[in-house]
Design a protein around this nucleic acid. Sequence first.
RNA 1: GGCGGUAUAGCCAAGUGGUAAGGCAGAGGUCUGCAAAACCUUUAUCGUCGGUUCGAAUCCGAUUACCGCCUCCA
Length: 471
Amino acid sequence: MLQVFNTMTREKEPFKSMTPNLVNMYVCGPTVYNYIHIGNGRSAVAFDTIRRYLEYKGYTVNYVSNFTDVDDKMINQAKKDHVTVMELGNKYIQAFKEDTAALNIKPATTNPRATEHIPEIITFIQDLIEKGYAYEVEGDVYYRTRKFKPYGELSGQNIDELEAGASQHTADEETARKEDPIDFALWKGAKADEISWESPWGQGRPGWHIECSVMSTELLGNTFDIHGGGEDLEFPHHENEIAQSEAKTGQKFVNYWLHNGFVTVGDDNEKMSKSLGNFVTVHEIIKTVDPQVLRFFLSTTQYRRPVQYTQDNLEDASRNLAKLKTAVNNVSYRLSDAETGSDPKTDQEVRQVMADFTDAMDDDFNVQNGITQVYELARLGNIYAERPVVFYDTLQFILKTLSQLLLIFGIELKAETEINDDTIEALIQERIDARQSRNYERSDEIREQLKNQGIILEDTPQGTRWRRVTK
RNA sequence: GGCGGUAUAGCCAAGUGGUAAGGCAGAGGUCUGCAAAACCUUUAUCGUCGGUUCGAAUCCGAUUACCGCCUCCA
């Protein structure tokens, strides 16, 4: 039985979707004014891994993740780049899709954009005003936070103890217009030459929080299963989403709140963020780091734990991944000389690994214990592949299971069986002949030569194998 | 000031009452013409102090350090 840690209750709870075999989930996506950094990538990877595990468990997952394509940051950046806000958004949405594809993140079922839902946003806000939860001031519309009694429940905050301005990000002019400093903007009146839409309150644009309430309830219903995002969104973003949505619908907004931990950098493990300027974009890093290694690195840390982005940890991930790749190769190589049939005892051991894997992952997606089972499976495969006599079906079962489990981590390994290079194949053959005539000097020479070309040769009881050097 | 999180071997990291999983790196070994790969063996008393208990990394209290949020942020 799958258990998930629900931020709302601060406890692991048995997971039960509203509709059997279907999960509706919404994950807060990026503001598209720049390339995504490793921290954004982590969030995307974390929830992609969760999604893949849910699918492995047999659920159909309706995965919605938004693009915030209009807000202050968008407007400022567009001005700086001398492009329109829409052009800026298009550019970085495209970049997002390329970067996440490199990390083998499955495309969302739907990627709604704030600017494509303006009429619905306006209707939603009007509804809140009619219900007395919002008010207009000189072209702006604010949410009357204190009127929503459960406010603060998700993040454990008490309105009266919230220290206004503690984060030093409040704008005084805006605060002055509000009935209460804790109120937040649903609609912002446009300044001259800013992108804007017509509304009952004049030209303007939506506030940040409202788009998620509108698009999630529209696409997934008033109540849906999972809402995810980075833990920095707990307060105020998700708190505000709850306030908006529940005030409007009168129904529970979300059943399970999941929040991922940060990527940290440096000796003091500081949060990676665009405002601190200590970020590395995915776009940049995959020029030098194998995207598959980056994916493996990010997906093998449990989503709630911080990820320490260091060279050492990245290399660790690279070595571990290479080890798994070797196991796939070792097992694959035996397919050619395997006997028909299967080995029941080994099959049973593989099934046990799968069961242990599921147990681990059912515990709030405990990928560390999950990946341990993958290593165990690789070990089983390596041991089995060294047997003098192996059975075809068992080899295939091991390979199929390995790829099935690795796929949850977003890793697809293919055994390399074709070298497609006549010169290299000729050299390999020449070395085999040399070894047979005990001309070890020549055979070592060839091995060294191929090694310089990135091909490692291994002599086994079943003959000589080759593999490519991993980066 | 309020709220939350983390602290386990050189590194990463499991483990919520019974004498510390796993991976990487290191050491030794098996296999090999030599290698490579693989496999086997090996390396900790769990931030500090106190308490509960027959027994605690695991429960309670205190304390220290670090991190995050408190209307930019995944």
